Each structure stands twice: as structure tokens, then as C-alpha cells.
Simulated scan of single mutants.
Amino acid sequence: MTGPTLAYTYAVARWADGLDQAVGAVTGVAGCRVHLVRATHERSLVAAVSSVPSGDFDEASLRRHLEELPWLEDVARAHHGVIEAIATHTTVLPLRLATVHLDDGRVRAVLDTRQDAFLDRLAELAGLLEWGVKLYVDAAAAPPPPSVENLSPGRAYLRHRRAEQDLRQDSYQAARTAAERIDATARLHAVDRVRHRVQLGELAPGPGTNVVNDAYLVPAEHAAAFRTDALRAADGLPGVRIAVTGPWAPYSFATLPPEEEASP
């Protein structure tokens, strides 16, 4: 690569056998090679980094690019691919999309300055996976109201509208029941939860209205039971749909305490 570059930083992790080869085998953001930067003293603490063109990743360029959906999707896909490659070998602390430092030296300085905070959080996340649970209200999937005969058109219309409103209210009540069941499942299997904003419009694929969008931190040995029980939370509840995604690296749980946040 010619021209000035910046250090795009994907994640912080504990070094493990095979990690160098794993990150070297994936294509990073902007098609750039990924390498590891080690902390100065705690050599087991590493960051996954790519040298990317500053013309696309400096502050002004990022502000522009983050409004470009195709560009953002490409970066997010590559970012995720690197983190998943690391997660197959060791505990990983994903960093925010488009975390950029001046150079590898600055990345190393951040590792050194925040060493204890990074190591503590990595220890806390060891053996834990993230699962996403989304709950949708889909009144259209519930049994339709019964047809009404021998009524005038006006009265039939009003009766039908009332039945639709009742059906919608019943679906939201069913969603509340499903949410309570998911909470009970989490108490059995999860160690932490993060509530995200519900997804609307293009961010909410499929039918229905998203009313819950949560992430759960689950021990690996509980993963299968958590997924099964979360999906069963909709059993017998018409008008409710549950989507479970994962397992993922712990994206939603990687944030350090505010006083420990690393600055680019």
C-alpha cells in the first residue's frame, strides 16, 4: 500500500497458539492484511490491526463514509470476519466499528496504558458467548376474527374493526407473556443482558413489529439449552414471533468502564 496509512483496530485479545495464522488468513477492512500488535510488557495481550489508507479512514472521510450504506456494510462484514476468526482461538474483546489509531505504536501505547482493564475484562468474558433474542408482535399471524353475518355493512365494519383491535391487544399481551418467559430462561442460563433499541423499518426484517431486542451473555455449556428455551417462549402464543441469533463474540459486553475507555 502506498500513501499515508492509519491503524484500523478490530479487537483486543489474549494471544493463543494459531492466532497469528488465523488473522493472517482473513481479509481485513478495505482488503488489507491483518496483523497482531503486542503490548510492550504483557506480551500475551494483543490487538488485531490493519494498515488502511488514511484517505478513507481519517475523521473527515469516516464522517462521509458512515452515511454510505454499501461502504458501511463492507466494513462491517470484514470487521466481523476478523473478530470471528480470533474468537475461534481465544477470548476476544471486540472494538467499535471504525476504531482507528495513528499507527501501530499508538495501538501498543493504548494496550500498555489500559493493560489491567483489558486483561480483567477478557478474564470476565472467558467461556462466554453472546446470543441475540428479538421478540416480534405479528397480529396478522394470529387467527382472524370470526366473520359476522346478518349485519348491515356499517355495523359489520365496526364489529370487524373492534375485533382487529382486540386481536392486536391480545398479541401485545402474548408478547408480554413471552418476554416474561425469556426473562425466566435468562435467569437459568445467562450471566448478563444488554437491552438494545428495537429495530424499525429496514432494520427489522420479516413480518411483525419488533418489541424486544436484547443480547445475552451465556456460558458455552448453556448455549444449546438457552437457544431452545428462548425459542419455546412463544409456544402457545399466537401473534408472537421470536428470533434467536448467535453465538457471537461478546460485542454487546465489550465496553470497558467509562474511566477505562481507550482513546484512539
Rank of each mutant, 00 (worst) to 15 (best):
R232M: 14
A178D: 06
R64T: 12
A25F: 01
V240F: 07
T185E: 00
E67A: 15
E261M: 10
D58N: 12
D103Y: 00
V133T: 06
D192F: 04
V26F: 04
G24V: 14
R64I: 13
L97S: 02
G24Y: 08
V194C: 08
A60R: 11
R232D: 13
A225Y: 04
I182T: 04
V211C: 09
V218L: 07
S152Y: 09
D116F: 14
A163T: 03
A175F: 03
A243R: 15
T5A: 11
F118K: 02
H101Y: 09
A186D: 01
R121A: 03
R64Q: 12
L72R: 11
N213M: 04
A215C: 10
H79Y: 02
V218D: 03
H160M: 12
F118E: 00
H89W: 13
E202I: 11
R241S: 14
L256G: 07
P205E: 05
T99C: 09
P153M: 00
E67Y: 11
E59I: 07
S54R: 09
A163Y: 05
N150L: 10
A225C: 09
G239W: 09
G127L: 06
L119E: 09
P238T: 05
A16N: 05
A223K: 08
D104Y: 10
E180L: 10
P238K: 07
A7D: 05
A254G: 08
R227N: 08
A39I: 14
L69G: 12
T27M: 12
E260V: 02
P207E: 03
K134T: 03
T113Q: 15
D112R: 00
P144T: 12
V211H: 05
V194A: 10
